[in-house]
Design a protein around this nucleic acid. Structure first.
Length: 494
RNA sequence: GCCCCCAUCGACUAGCGGCCUAGGUCACCACUCUUUCAAGGUGGUAGCACCGGUUCGAUUCCGGUUGGGGGCGCCA
């Protein structure tokens, strides 16, 4: 039975790089009919916050990465929060101490720092020198008397360690390069290295799939597994996610948290799909996957060893693809809060309003790249447009007013406001008066919507309806600033 | 400084010794469709880091150089 885990520390929002790790674990578990476990690594007292734990949980769910065991769902290997498992680490550390696998170290941070600098200069080694390994009773007593609080260090044997990585193959670390590392901090909490191994062991994790930044830590973990007499899990270290400047992806690169992308109007399935493509490729080059397809196709063997740069651009394209694919109904639901936030929709919309808005969304759907584009692109339907003087200047000539007035008359005569009929009528006008269509269509579009971007002109008029269309036209025609053909400042026509 | 990983178009990648005059996707450019903005269609620009080997033959195998990334914490 395959058992994998994602173990975030709640010190911030879910980072896209971590989300990708979670996703690979999730997909691997599903592919192998195994279990996906969520474990919260909250042993950093300084930085961990409940708020972030909650946010991470929400964002994982939003991405569709549901776990079989972990917070909020339980399981037989709990608890799944490390601060609730402290006794386990302490007991095991005590056993290590008694078995001579670990020892108490009384060095202070200052002493450590000083010696580290010196060793770095002299030998290029930055690790602990092991000087507390064999303290006498008297020395220990003296340290206690000084009030020093010890840490527990693991005694690293001088042998080289081999890591057989599923993605990278065999990696060998020389024994001397690993120094005695801390497993229990002076506050009694376990360090990351100790807690992961103890938990992976106790939770029966079979495959450790994580970022490449942990590859160098793996020999330590292997040593710990051995000390626990535990069977080694398989390791798979996936490539890192970098920013456009090839450095670790961070806030400097803009949005880096799943939360930020959510708020920017991205769809979960788009992010899911994009993340899957970062460091993994299907054999046949397929790039668009449903969750099920990805689960079917995925394999660790096809994971790339090269670090991947997170490309906002391709994500945006892919999001647009999914925006076009999904139903107007869902887009309506997802964008309603955004419309409300911009006062484009009432807090308690009527069925009529919703139906109309859905119609608008359907009309403009092919142009949305993110949900945030929805208010922007359909806003002018929902409330009187604001006119941009530059546009007026560019598209309106002195003659325009006359043309618009003629159109107004024609529209008033229309019995049906069906778009084919409207088009026919206006094209007839163009012919009769020998107007070039562009000369008529552009100003009309701007007069009605305040923008050059929009749906088909006649579809737009149909949805706006006779009354509103004529109303907007009249307002523009009467607008004083328009008379000169320029300087139509932003603002709502009277 | 020491240790580890990595190296194909600007980006993600396919390639697992001859099928490669290196393929796909995003971006970019051109053309096309068109009442705008998109979307779509067609075409195009662009890459095997470098130096040595191995081999009849290297993008593919080996070594080195260079470059990038990661680790060396009482952070995870």
């Amino acid at each position: 039975m395959v058992r994998v885990r994602f173990a975030p520390s709640p010190t911030g929002y879910l980072h896209v790089g971590n989300a990708r790790t979670a996703l690979f674990n999730y997909v691997f578990a599903r592919k192998n009919s195994g279990q996906f476990i969520l474990r919260i690594e909250d042993t950093d007292q300084e930085r961990s916050a409940v708020k972030y734990e909650q946010a991470i949980i929400e964002d994982l769910r939003w991405l569709g990465l549901d776990w079989d065991e972990g917070p909020e769902v339980g399981g037989n290997y709990g608890p799944y929060r490390q601060t609730e498992r402290l006794h386990l680490y302490q007991e095991l550390a005590e056993k290590f101490l008694q078995a001579g696998l670990a020892y108490r170290c009384y060095c202070t941070r200052e002493e450590l720092e000083g010696r580290k600098q010196q060793a770095l200069q002299e030998k290029g080694m930055a690790g602990y020198d092991g000087r507390c390994r064999y303290l006498t009773q008297a020395q220990v007593a003296a340290f206690h008397h000084e009030g020093r609080k010890p840490v527990v260090r693991f005694q690293v044997p001088a042998e080289s360690i081999e890591v057989n990585d599923l993605i990278r193959g065999k990696v060998v670390f020389a024994g001397e390069t690993i120094s005695d590392f801390v497993i229990i901090k002076s506050d009694g909490l376990p360090t990351f290295h100790f807690a992961v191994v103890v938990d992976d062991f106790l939770m029966g994790i079979t495959h450790v799939i994580r970022g490449e930044d942990h590859l160098s830590n793996t020999p330590k973990h292997i040593l710990l597994f051995r000390a626990l007499k535990a069977r080694l899990p398989f390791f798979a270290h996936m490539s890192m996610t970098l920013g456009p400047d090839r450095t670790r992806l961070s806030k400097r690169h803009g949005a880096t948290s799943i939360r930020a992308f959510r708020q920017a109007g991205y769809l979960p399935e788009a992010l899911f799909n994009y993340l899957a493509l970062l460091g993994w490729a299907s054999p046949d080059g397929q790039e668009i996957f449903t969750r099920e397809e990805l689960v079917r196709e995925f394999s660790l063997e096809r994971c790339s060893k090269t670090a991947a740069i997170f490309d906002h651009n391709k994500l945006l394209w892919m999001n647009g693809l999914y925006m076009r694919k999904t139903s107007p109904e869902r887009l309506l639901q997802l964008s309603l809060p955004l419309l409300q936030a911009q006062s484009l929709a009432p807090q308690e919309p009527t069925a009529e309003f919703l139906a109309k808005t859905k119609q608008l969304i359907a009309l403009e759907q092919e142009k949305f790249k993110t949900l945030s584009d929805i208010p922007e692109r359909i806003g002018f339907f929902l409330k009187t447009p604001v006119y941009d003087s530059k546009l007026i200047e560019k598209y309106f000539t002195p003659q325009t007013r006359e043309i618009l007035a003629e159109i107004e008359v024609i529209l008033a005569d229309q019995e049906s406001f069906e778009h084919h009929k409207l088009e026919e009528a206006i094209r007839t006008l163009c012919q009769e008066k020998a107007y070039k269509p562009a000369q008529v269509f552009h100003p009309l579009r701007i007069a009605l919507s305040g923008t050059t971007k929009g749906p088909g002109l006649f579809e737009m008029m149909e949805i706006l309806g006779k009354e509103e269309t004529i109303g907007r036209l009249q307002a523009v025609i009467k607008n004083e600033t328009f008379r000169s053909g320029k300087d139509g400042g932003p603002g709502t026509p009277p």
